[in-house]
Structures are given as structure tokens and as C-alpha cells.
């Protein structure tokens, strides 16, 4: 079966920033975390997927179909959640639902009512009176009530308290039990992804730095700690970045098993977090 989301050589040029021929692919049944520092191109990529901005070149296929040629069909099957509220402040939860619902072919009022109850959303309150967490839950309720196969979320957890964040992650975990669905989820809070992501795609300065399963990423990379003299024996290609402190060096390396064999236990190899990987890659680029 074709990937649920596939991006090939996607390019978009702005005056001060370019998305440079990026590639990624997400299979059905999986959650992909899309990480990168602020301004790396996460939102630009997501807006291109949603055809909110126009691509300069490249290809975006959703369920194997071009996202622009089959725009209506594709968008019927996408649930979309944004970092900020884009609903009208001036209307109530029910009125806003009534504006949006008629556009979806497979809108399911029962499912929506269920989420409204589960999320304890006040239907008669105006959108502007909802808290940030409530607004996100409302967006999520809309995104999940029209039988979407692909959930696309742009920084859904930013600015939310840990309780609501954890609730959201639980919902996503439950959702992905359906093997026909896929979730593409951008964030700079990487601890969210430690819990739920199957794949990690890391973007920096408009380029995809890496895209792999989370497990192989965490197995392949290691955080090497030891004295400065150790550094010289490592193949330069295996070094992602180096941080110096008073005890010696901390180095993020690729092919950690190969590197480890060089030292015969004279150095300590720790498991990096996604944050470590993101920080070392970003710093390296800054120093280059």
C-alpha cells in the first residue's frame, strides 16, 4: 500500500528562508514526530501539505494522491490541528462546529458529541472564553469527527500544561491503534515524542537532517563522555557535535557500536535523548 504521506523534493523559496528539496515518507499505522528548532521550516512544510502556501517545486502525495489536484478529496480525510486558535472568537463552540461541519462529507455528529463530553467542552461558551487547552481540545474534536485517516498537527502541545499534554498523547496513542491511520505531528517539545512517536524526522534550516525510526535513531546515536585525548581516534564522519566541560568532552556520535569498539571501556557511552540529538545537530550547524 502507498504511504499515507509522501513528500518528494519539496521546495519553497521565501526572501529570507528556503525549504530545500525535502523528502519524507510516513506509512499507515504510525506516528511521525517532526522536530526542529523554531524557524527550521516545520510550519512551512505543514502549510505546504495543506496547500495553504504554494510550493515552488516537488511533490506531496497523501494516500498516494497529489494534494493539490485532489485537494477536496484529500482534505476530507485530514484532521488538522494548529498551534494557535484560528476559529472565530466571536461565536460559540456549537456555532463554530455548525460552520465547519457541513464541509466534511463524512461528518459524524455522534463522534463529535462524544468528544465534547469527554473533553468537557462548554458548548455555549464563545471561543474567546475558552482556555488555551480547551481551544486545542475543540480543534481536536473537530479534527477527529469526520473520519479522517491522517492527522496533521502543528505544535499542538506548545503552551499546554503537562496534564492536558499527557491527555492529548493518550488520545493519539489510542487513535493509532487503527492501522489505517497516520499521525504527523510537529513539535519542539521532544519529550512528547519519546513517549509516542514511531518515526522521527528532524528538520533544520529548511533541510531534513535525518528521518528514521525512533528506535534505530536512539540505537545508532550515542553520547560519548571522556577525556579530550579520546576524540582524535574517532572517525570525523561519526562525530555530530562536541561539547566541552571541565571534566572533558561530551560528543554526540553516529554508529555508536563502531565508536565504542575503539575505546574498550575507557569511555562512557550514554543513550542520547531526542533533545540531545536536536541540540548537537543545531549547534554544529551554527558553528560551521
Amino acid at each position: 500500500m502507498e504511504p499515507i504521506l509522501e513528500i518528494k523534493n519539496l521546495r519553497k523559496n521565501f526572501d529570507s528562508f528556503s525549504l530545500k528539496d525535502i523528502n519524507l515518507s510516513l506509512e499507515r499505522g504510525y506516528i511521525m514526530g517532526f522536530i526542529g528548532p523554531n524557524g527550521a521550516g516545520k510550519s512551512t512544510t505543514i502549510k505546504l501539505i495543506m496547500n495553504l502556501i504554494k510550493r515552488d517545486s516537488g511533490e506531496i502525495k497523501i494516500f498516494g494522491k497529489d494534494n493539490i489536484k485532489n485537494e477536496i478529496e484529500v482534505k476530507n480525510k485530514i484532521g488538522f490541528v494548529l498551534d494557535e486558535n484560528h476559529y472565530y472568537d466571536e461565536v460559540t463552540v456549537t456555532q463554530m462546529k455548525n460552520i465547519v461541519a457541513p464541509f466534511y462529507k463524512e461528518w459524524d455528529e455522534k463522534v463529535f458529541d462524544k468528544y465534547i463530553k469527554d473533553f468537557e467542552l462548554p458548548v455555549d461558551k464563545k471561543i474567546k472564553e475558552l482556555s488555551k487547552g480547551m481551544k486545542m481540545k475543540f480543534s481536536l474534536a473537530i479534527a477527529l469527527s469526520h473520519n479522517a485517516s491522517l492527522l496533521i498537527m502543528d505544535e499542538p502541545t506548545s503552551g499546554l500544561d503537562p496534564v492536558i499534554r499527557s491527555e492529548l498523547l493518550d488520545i493519539l496513542t489510542e487513535l493509532i491503534q487503527d492501522e489505517n491511520k497516520g499521525i504527523f505531528f510537529s513539535t519542539h517539545i521532544t519529550s512528547d515524542l519519546d513517549k509516542i512517536a514511531d518515526y522521527i524526522t528532524f528538520i533544520n534550516d529548511g533541510e531534513i537532517v535525518l528521518s528514521d525510526t525512533k528506535d534505530s535513531l536512539l540505537e545508532n546515536y550515542g553520547l560519548l563522555k571522556g577525556p579530550k585525548s579520546l576524540m582524535d581516534s574517532i572517525d570525523k564522519k561519526d562525530i555530530v557535535g562536541v561539547k566541552e566541560n571541565q571534566y572533558g568532552l561530551e560528543t554526540l556520535v553516529r554508529n555508536k557500536n563502531k565508536v565504542m569498539r575503539l575505546f574498550n571501556g575507557k569511555a562512557v557511552m550514554e543513550k542520547p535523548t531526542l533533545d540531545d540529538i536536536m541540540v548537537y545537530y543545531t549547534r554544529r550547524n551554527e558553528h560551521a
Binding site: M50, N51, L52, E71, I72, E73, K75, N76, I78, F80, L82, E84, N85, H86, Y87, Y88, D89, V100, F103, Y104, K105
Partner: peptide
Amino acid sequence: NKADIMLNSLP
């Protein structure tokens, strides 16, 4: 309300 983003993400 940045409604253009909301409207154009609908089908």
C-alpha cells in the same frame, strides 16, 4: 482570527 488558514484547511 486568521480565518483564511482555517477556511482553506477545510475541504
